[in-house]
Simulated assay, not measured.
Amino acid sequence: MTYTNEEYAEMAIKANEEGKALKEVKGKLKLVEPAPIHLSDEQIVSQNKAMKISLINEANEKIAILQDVIDLDMLEADEEVQLKKWKKYRILLTRVDTSDVNALFPEKPV
């Protein structure tokens, strides 16, 4: 069966919304459960490293802003407490062993 670009796009959007995959079954496009993705240990370690870098960068940004607030005496609410939490979080991130495929990352401060 032939589908127009619009029909295909409509099916693809629906599949995405439902967390499904598009698959041709007996000449017709069907929404099916996606096949599980199996990553190699190398891929997982690579993702762990990227995640660690990204989370440390985010923590650095939060810390820099909170430090500026304190340095310029522009404190509101619990910003000094937030700064300590983000610094602790950053330290915990640096201790994550990304070479472990089961690496656990600390929870972000709230």
Score class of each variant (00 low, 15 high):
Y8P: 05
L83M: 13
L55Y: 14
K23C: 09
I56R: 13
Q43N: 04
E80K: 14
L66C: 07
T98H: 06
L66D: 03
L92I: 04
A21R: 04
E79H: 00
L22N: 08
G19N: 01
K20G: 05
L55F: 12
E107Q: 09
K14I: 11
L72D: 13
K14L: 04
E76T: 14
E80Q: 08
E76C: 01
A50E: 15
K23S: 02
E58V: 09
L104E: 09
E17D: 15
M51R: 13
L75D: 06
E7Q: 15
V25L: 10
L29Q: 06
N102C: 04
S99T: 14
D68A: 05
E58K: 14
E80H: 12
K20N: 06
K30C: 12
N60Q: 15
V32H: 02
V101Y: 05
I53K: 12
K14G: 01
F105K: 01
K62F: 15
A15Q: 06
A9Y: 11
G27E: 02
I56Y: 15
I13P: 04
I44R: 00
P109Q: 11
A77F: 14
E33P: 04
K20P: 06
A21Q: 08
W86L: 08
K62H: 14
L93Q: 08
K85L: 05
E76L: 05
Y3A: 02
P34Q: 01
P109M: 09
K85A: 04
E107P: 03
A15L: 01
N60L: 14
F105Q: 09
A9D: 08
A35C: 01
K52T: 09
L104M: 02
E80A: 07
A9G: 04
K14E: 10
Q67I: 14
E7P: 00
I56E: 15
A59D: 11
M11K: 08
T4F: 03
H38E: 02
E17H: 12
P109D: 08
I65S: 01
L104G: 03
E42K: 07
T98C: 06
L39S: 10
V25A: 01
L83D: 13
E76G: 00
K23Q: 10
P109E: 08
